[in-house]
Amino acid sequence: MSAVAIIAPIVVSSWPAISAAVASAAVSMGFSVAREVANQGLNQDLRAGSNTVTLDVPNCSAVTGTLGRDQRIQMARDAVTVEFSRDARGRDSVCVTGEGFTDVQLRAIGDEIAGRTVQHYVLAKLKSEMAGKGMDLVEETVEQNQSIRLRVRHWQN
């Protein structure tokens, strides 16, 4: 073994790439993706009588040239509804709504969704870029703490 690096992710993506990561993260957390909508607000019925918190997604931004309209994807699990959105300026945020949940609980769910979205975005990007460099993914496992571990083999002259 020669080196160990820890890299903090920076997500600069188009909406299709980030929404795919959102959907993948949502499914891994037991959410079902309700729908993807453009230029619409969160369904107001979902908010009636429920608590709502909205969080920014850190280190996440849109690819220049893809801005200009709001994009949203909604998902649900039990009594919790989550809307991941990108505004016209390219800012990503997560809005979590749930009846019977405290703000702290909803914030924790939102933080987890945001983190897992970045995780799945990085996973997809790694797989795509590594394939282009002739690196073979020989093992992919999900750890108990929800980390994703990849073992990669790379043959070189």
């Binding site: 020669s2 820890i6 970045v118 995780q119 990085v122 703490n145 990849l150 083999r153 790379h154």
Partner: peptide
């Protein structure tokens, strides 16, 4: 041909830890 082994762990917040194996020197 030499085989390199990389172990990549993507944490639940997206942080990535990479172990690079099979190299000599600064490769």
């Amino acid at each position: 041909m030499k085989a390199r082994e990389y172990e990549i762990t993507i944490g639940p917040t997206g942080e990535v830890e990479i172990h690079v194996e099979g190299f000599q020197g600064k490769g």
